[in-house]
Design a protein around this nucleic acid. Structure first.
Lengths: 117, 117
DNA sequence: CATGTAATTCCATTATCGCGGAAATATGGA
DNA sequence: TCCATATTTCCGCGATAATGGAATTACATG
């Protein structure tokens, strides 16, 4: 039993293969990627990938949609935001100085890569 | 073997008891908490807690220091920042719109609780 | 040095996870 | 309907994680 949804999300991401799949989908954006394409890029057998996609799905981090005979997976950005919010939720209580750096982390994560947000 | 440090951090946090200990330490700030005090608050036997503190330490999320006969654990904010930065690293590539909400998440995480940062 | 407290390490048991072969389900096209 | 493609489900094996009792190390005090 998983009482905290955050724990399920963290557990889903605490796996090298799943983490790289999730990052792949985050980069892919709203268009998403078909399971087969993910398997090809990741170089893993389709059944193992399927199990891991299922774990990410049940954690709410990604969403499947059928399109023809493919199943397209997309990152669920709301869920990702929720997880990040949960992680920073308590930081200000003990040490307010962490919040400012966290804000810069978010902007640096975008600016440093010369991306437009 | 754990090639990505982020995976070790995520695995360390993907456990209800460890996650609550980490959040406790994040709230506690630079002063930290003694292992015994953590065990008391969490209501877990000291040996189980010790194992979990060790996992969090090896992931770099917390740091121990001896003080008299107690061992005081503190959250490692740099490591936490690193993990969050890693998680948001790719988000702008596929969907730039996620970055703005992330910034608000960080500020909401502070403002909503009427905290001062 | 003896004692009590704080915390860890050792160890065995049980539970869960990760993996991949083989079979099954779903879809689209000839 | 028959076939090929896409993906999932089923199943078993080996590895890893979680747990807590008991013993051990570290420190402070008298």
């Amino acid at each position: 039993m998983e009482s905290l949804p955050a724990v399920a999300s963290l557990a889903a991401l605490a796996h090298e293969g799943r983490l790289s799949v999730f990052r792949m989908l985050v980069q892919a954006g709203a268009g998403g990627l078909a399971a087969g394409e993910i398997a090809r890029r990741a170089g893993v057998p389709p059944n193992s990938l399927s199990a891991n996609l299922n774990i990410l799905s049940r954690a709410g981090l990604i969403r499947p949609r059928r399109e023809g005979r493919s199943i397209i997976y997309t990152a669920d950005y709301d869920s990702m935001r929720g997880l990040l919010a949960f992680l920073v939720e308590d930081c200000c209580g003990g040490s307010p100085e962490i919040c400012a750096p966290l804000a810069t982390v978010v902007s640096q994560g975008c600016d440093a890569e010369a991306r437009r947000c």
